[in-house]
């Protein structure tokens, strides 16, 4: 038995006792975290290990199961790009209870973001997108740890990827997306790719080594969003598909295949292709 498992068993017994004496799961989790000096997400994962759901995840229970919820709480996801797709992705990942989130974006909000970027509002114009995301995460779930990196993806150090299980590609240029593909390959981390333009969008899992993004974009370095712009509903829709794909992957429910889903919201057409 490993040290971690022994410690986990020990902490689980303490948590059981705390639940019994306090009669309240949330208080028991809080107490365990403070007394033992462990992150709250770890205490919540221990509760799930006892098949006990903290109230904030109760509505996830039937879908994720306690093992699944525990796994998400023990997962770390990096979201590259906190704009149209990234804002919605963070919102859902934190509500799913993914334990650690790294948010990467170098930009501040401006007025042109207001139509679609979830964390932009009149008061956040000029605020960095990472700061806005951190504020929002703290309001939704204080057990989730959010690490803001207010830098361009290209300027990240290798330690930004330490312990990262999954990367969300919510970027907005083909060049930076291809850079992210290289990073996924270098550190053996799969990507959940999403992209939008006008009424249209695409979602794919990019497995390390698959070069799927290279196959999608070929020699193209500019997308149709330059012509069509980005209305509010397309990023919300595509980010939702990305999160459901990401959750399945974290729960070990995705098999390795190089498939892209194209969504045409104008004609309500959905096309899966394998590259």
């Amino acid at each position: 038995m490993s040290k971690i498992t022994k410690n986990e068993e020990h902490l689980s017994r303490i948590l059981e006792q705390l639940i019994e004496t306090t009669g309240e799961v949330e208080i028991a989790i809080e107490t365990l975290a403070v007394d033992q000096g462990i992150p709250k997400r770890v205490a919540e994962a221990l509760a799930c290990g006892l098949d006990i759901f903290p109230k904030r995840y109760k509505a996830n229970a039937g879908t994720l199961g306690s093992e699944g919820q525990k796994r998400l709480l023990q997962s770390k996801v990096l979201v590259a790009g906190l704009g149209g797709l990234g804002g919605h992705a963070v919102e859902q990942l934190v509500r799913c209870g993914v334990g650690e989130l790294v948010g990467v974006d170098a930009d501040n909000f401006d007025e042109t973001n207001l139509n679609r970027q979830l964390y932009s509002d009149i008061n956040s114009i000029g605020l960095s997108k990472t700061e806005a995301a951190r504020n929002r995460v703290a309001k939704i779930n204080d057990a989730v740890e959010f690490y803001p990196l207010t830098r361009k993806l290209e300027d990240l150090e290798s330690d930004a990827y330490n312990g990262v299980d999954l990367i969300f590609d919510c970027l907005d240029t083909i060049t930076s997306r291809l850079h992210l593909q290289d990073i996924g390959e270098r550190y053996s981390i799969p990507l959940i790719h999403g992209a939008i333009g006008g009424w249209f969008g695409q979602v794919a899992v990019v497995w390390p080594g698959s070069k799927l993004l290279s196959n999608i974009y070929g020699t193209k370095r500019e997308g149709i969003e330059k012509t069509f712009g980005n209305p509010p509903f397309t990023p919300a829709f595509i980010a939702t598909l990305m999160v459901s794909e990401g959750i399945k992957l974290l729960l070990g429910k995705k098999k390795r295949e190089n498939t892209v889903l194209f969504a045409d919201l104008l004609n309500n057409q959905w096309q899966y292709i394998t590259l």
């Binding site: 992209a195 333009g197 249209f200 969008g201 695409q202 292709i273």
Partner: peptide
């Protein structure tokens, strides 16, 4: 199946084309 632009086509084949989408 993924194809290149110089590929010759045959009777009855189906050609599907997709644009680049890259916004975020």
């Amino acid at each position: 199946r993924h194809a290149k632009l110089d590929q010759p086509l045959h009777d009855g084949e189906t050609v599907a084309a997709f644009p680049p989408i890259a916004g975020g």
